[in-house]
Simulated scan of single mutants.
Amino acid sequence: MPRTRDADADSGDAASGADLDAIAAELYALPPERFTAARNDRAAQLGRADAARVRELRKPTVAAWVVSLTVRDGRLAEAITLSAALREAQDDADAAALAELGRQRRRLVQALAGEAVTLAEDAGVTVSASARDDIAATINAAVMDAAAATAVMTGRLVRPLVAGGFDPSDLSDAVGGSLPGVAPSPPPPDDLAERRARKAAERAAREADRAQADAERRLAAAEADLERRRTRLAHLRERADELRRSLDDVEAQTEVARAETEKAEAEHAELTTAVTRAARAAEAAREALPAGS
C-alpha cells in the first residue's frame, strides 16, 4: 500500500530532540514581540508532528529573554564558574571561603543584572523594574544551584527562576526544548577526602604564615621598644654624669664659702671685742676728767 503524502512528510521531517533545541535556540534569540509569529512561521515549514512540537514552545517573559541574551553574549560564564566554587566550598564546609564567595556572588549578580539590562535596551527591548528584579533573581539562582545554571545556560529560558533546591523536573517548564542533564555528580569519596585534606593543609599553611607574620610584627615592635629604652637609659646616664659634675663643683664652692665665712666670723668677733674695749676705755676716760672741766 502506498504511503500517504502526510505520512511521508512526517517521516522525512521528523526532527530529533537536538533539532528541536536548535530551532528553539533560533526562536528564543529573537525579541519577545517577534517570537510568536516567527514560531508559527517555522512550524508551518515542518510536518505535523514536528510542527506541533514547535508550536508548544512558549513565548519567553522579558526577564527570561534578557537572561538568555546575556548567556549568548557570554557574560554568565564567570557566574557559573563562581557557582561551582561556591558549591565546592559548601561541600568542604569552609566558612571563610563561603563568606568571601557570598560577597563575590552578590557583587557579580548585581553587575551582571545591570549589564543584562543594558544589553536588552541596546537591542531595543524595554525592561521594567519588576523584570529587573526577575533578571537578578534568575542570575542568582544560576549561581546558587547547578540545575538552575544548566537551565539558564541553554539560552532557551522561558520564565525567571528563584534560588532554591531544584530537581530537573522542577525546571522542565522553564526551558523551551529539552533540558540537558544536571551538573556532574560529586567526586568519589576518595577524591573528596583528598580535596578536603588539601584544603586543610592549605588552611594550616595560611595559619602558619599568619602566625609567623604576627610573631615578626611583635618582634619588630619589641626591638623598636628596646631601642627606645636603651636610648633613654643612655640619655639619663649622661644627665646623671652632668649632675654629678655639677654637684662636685657646688660642693667645692660650698667648702670655699664655708672657710671664707668662718674667717669673716672670726674677724667680726675680733672687731666686736675691739669696739667693746674702745667703748669702755672712752667711758673710763670721761669719768677721769676733773669736775667742772
Rank of each mutant, 00 (worst) to 15 (best):
G165L: 12
K59G: 04
A97S: 14
A49Y: 04
L101C: 03
A95Y: 09
L76E: 13
A147E: 10
L108M: 08
E121V: 12
V162D: 15
A97I: 05
A52Q: 11
A151N: 06
A148H: 00
D91F: 00
R103G: 03
A120P: 14
D134A: 06
E100K: 15
S130P: 05
D73R: 08
A79Q: 11
L82M: 05
V125K: 04
S128V: 09
M144G: 07
A96C: 01
A49L: 06
R87C: 05
L76P: 10
V66F: 10
D167M: 08
A64V: 04
R48T: 02
M153G: 09
V54I: 14
L76W: 12
T138F: 00
G47C: 06
L108V: 11
L86H: 08
S83Y: 00
A147V: 06
R103N: 01
L82Y: 04
A97V: 14
A79C: 07
A95H: 09
T138H: 08
L119C: 13
L101N: 09
M153R: 09
S68G: 13
G102E: 10
L112V: 13
M153F: 00
R105N: 11
R106M: 09
F166S: 11
A93F: 01
D94V: 04
P60E: 02
S83V: 02
S130T: 14
L76H: 12
A51D: 14
E121Q: 13
A136S: 09
L98W: 04
L108T: 10
A141C: 13
G47Y: 10
D133P: 00
L76V: 15
L161N: 09
E121P: 06
R48Q: 06
L86G: 10
G164S: 11
A141Y: 00
V125G: 12
V117D: 02
V54D: 08
D122H: 09
A97P: 09
V66L: 12
L119I: 07
E88A: 03
A129K: 13
A51Y: 14
T126S: 15
L98Y: 02
V127I: 06
A148F: 00
A51L: 03
R55N: 12
R103E: 03
L161F: 05
E121W: 00
A85I: 01
A85W: 05
V54S: 13
A149M: 04
R106I: 05
L101K: 01
P160D: 12
R53W: 01
V117T: 10
D50N: 09
R107A: 15
V71W: 04
V71I: 10
L82I: 05
E100I: 07
A136I: 05
R156E: 04
E56T: 03
A79V: 12
L161P: 08
L69H: 09
V117L: 00
G114T: 09
